[in-house]
Design a protein around this nucleic acid. Sequence first.
RNA 1: GGCCCGUUCGUCUAGCGGUUAGGACACCGCCCUCUCAAGGCGGAGAUCACGGGUUCGAAUCCCGUACGGGCUACCA
Length: 490
Amino acid sequence: MTSAVRVRFAPSPTGFLHIGGARTALYNWAFARHHGGTLVLRIEDTDPERSTAENTDAILRAMRWLGLDWDEGPEIGGAYGPYFQTQRFDRYSALLEQLKTSGHAYPCFCSPETLEEKRNAARTRGGFAGYDRTCRTLAPAEVAGRVAAGESHVWRLKVPQDRGDITFIDAVRGEVVFPPDAVDDFVLARTDGSPTYNFAVVADDVDMAISHVIRGDDHLSNTPKQIVVYEALELPIPIFAHLSMILGADGKRLSKRHGATSVEAYRDLGYLPEVLMNYLALLGWSLDGETTILSAKTLCENFSLDRISKNPAIFDEEKLAWMNGVYLRDMPAEEFVRRMMPSLEDAGLITAEEAAEDGRAKWLLKLAPLLQERTKQLPEVVGMVRFLFQAPSIDPTAQEKVLEKDGAGVALDAAVDTLTLVEPFEHTAIEAALREVPGRIGAKPKDVFQAVRVSVAGGTVSLPLFESLELLGKDTTLARLAAARQMATD
RNA sequence: GGCCCGUUCGUCUAGCGGUUAGGACACCGCCCUCUCAAGGCGGAGAUCACGGGUUCGAAUCCCGUACGGGCUACCA
């Protein structure tokens, strides 16, 4: 029998949920779901300087938006709480007491300044730059005296001198070996009694019965330290899996320089949550090397740690945009209308109330498929549909190249004549009528269509012409053709 | 400086001793076509970072080197 899978995502609320964190959360989630396990969300807010409640909220919001749910944690509760580190200080003290009584922790009175000096000296000399263990060998009587006298001190872990190499099997990188001096007698509890990261993480992972620690690569070097704490506590060590970094287009660590780095920024850019999930799933993991479009369900069914790649990956926004287009094209028109409405509202083209009217709803439904084929990011629709709501200003280049071309006026006159007769004003009938025009006036089809397009949409690029005219309606179409006729050359 | 990790088309990746090194994005061309897209077809693009081994045979295993990254705090 295998023990229950319990994993955790442990963000520190010092900022929004960024792309890298989201992927870590996603992999933990997928792993938990695959095994029918539990995903714990734990907030590592022990840094009072940088942690805020707003950031916590933003992180939860971003996770929910992405489609990630957790089984224990903020807003949910659970049997292993509390899930904020700042609420768990009594647990850290209890564990620290345990280490003190078992002789695995000792007080250190060295001042930060001396430590700094020693560290610098050691580093310029080359080699081991960890704590030199000065206070480890203090006489018990002296220690007791100084503590009693109220001298400030931290508590350090007494790492066994004969520990030897620290080896563990990382689920993605395989066997990783650290030499003994990779771990010094590091600080467990600060002068003020608060726990340091490497101690708090272990305490929490122990208390929350975490079975697999799936986290960023930047923690790989912290792992041996944590292992030593597990050993001091005489507790089983979880399985570790370290994910490599996500980089910007220049191969550097993703940062503000690269534009959007937070999940919510991508939401605001018009990306669908399922697309971001799909893209992130494949940025460092693969199903079979062939599949590029996959659902959350497929992800969860197939996710495994051994298919996570070891090397860092560059975040390719172009591929993300392509993928967004794929999803946008494949969704039902109703859904597309729903998703694009905020963009249209923001642009002041149509209100939600108007869109809900029966006639408008049907009209939008007809419009949707035309947009779905050419949209990668939702806000792009605004530029494509504006001419349907407002009279266009004719693009000067288009005017010169199309309307001022010889025969444009004749073509527009002919178009007006035939369109006036089209009833009902529906795109197949419009197309049939317009296709007769070139032959009748001795012009090329392309010239006629482009003249109409520029007149009606303002430029040489637009949604498909015949459908556009139908959407516009006969009156508006004829009015725009008449207006453009003024600028056209016979 | 020390320790650890990584290195397959521009990018994401498949590959886990024997393949014409496969797919996707991007790029180029053709087709379709009322423009733009979408779609279809095709193309270019990787001496698998480099150098040594091991092996009949290495992108795959081992050792070095180079480059990139991480850790080296009373940050997380």
